[in-house]
Amino acid sequence: MDRSPVAFDQNFSGAAGDFPVLLRRKGLLAPAAANPLPQAGTPEKTWQPTEATTILAFKFSGGVLVAGDRRATAGNTVVYDRADKVLEIDRHSIMAIAGVPATAWEMARVLEHSFQYFRRTQLQEMSVDGKVRALSKLLRDNFGFVMQGVGVVVPIFATYDSHPKPEARLYFYDAMGAQFEVTDYAATGSGSPAVRGILYYENNWGAKPLQELGEDEAVSIALRALDTAAESDTSTGGVDRSGKIYPLIKIVSREGITTLPESKIAAVFKETVA
């Protein structure tokens, strides 16, 4: 341990409680990648970044539902059928990821530790705006890698804000780190166009708007949407009927995060989807 007061530097540089700054100082996190300049003679794009997955989130009467399929692919090959793309960051925040798993999981890990580190060092919880911005900054730092054709991540962030008034908040991001707060629903990944269509339709002309759905109805719509995405998108797993692998569904509410048990998802699936 260095006797020189690291905390001193931090607290005076305006980076108080910034965990990525600490990691970079200790050489534990790659520095932000520079955007490569286009070179003469190289094709504009050698590799098409894909976000092969489907992630969706929408607000319903019990908070925010976040769902993701379980398939991980490499090109045309399915490499894993139980991938966890809906990740808990803290007691009230979920990051759902579409994109390159290595980068996405590392980002989730940095983010999780960032929030804890901030609370422990600064003795107060990071605000929702601060958390949203922290993810945005990680994406921005990663953009150089995205331009080099590796490590694209396009996440959704769902959380429950208690200040100034208790409400669920939902954001989606682009690969450069721009954040967009949505009022009703968000979807990313290769299967998202179909999902977006379904959620738009349900919200406007369905039995009731998404925000008024009960939990079972919300789960049912999420399963139907993922199943629809899987119908045309090879990179989305949907529901594996023979292997009994169901999407991962988590709910963020005022009380915290609930992971729906597989038995419950299976029951709703059997009743309303299959």
């Binding site: 905390a7 990691l23 534990l28 890990r109 530790h113 422990r120 060092t121």
Partner: peptide, 15 residues
Amino acid sequence: RLRMAAIELASTEGF
């Protein structure tokens, strides 16, 4: 200073 050092050490180890 000691508290900060302890948190930094624990957090980087945990990460």
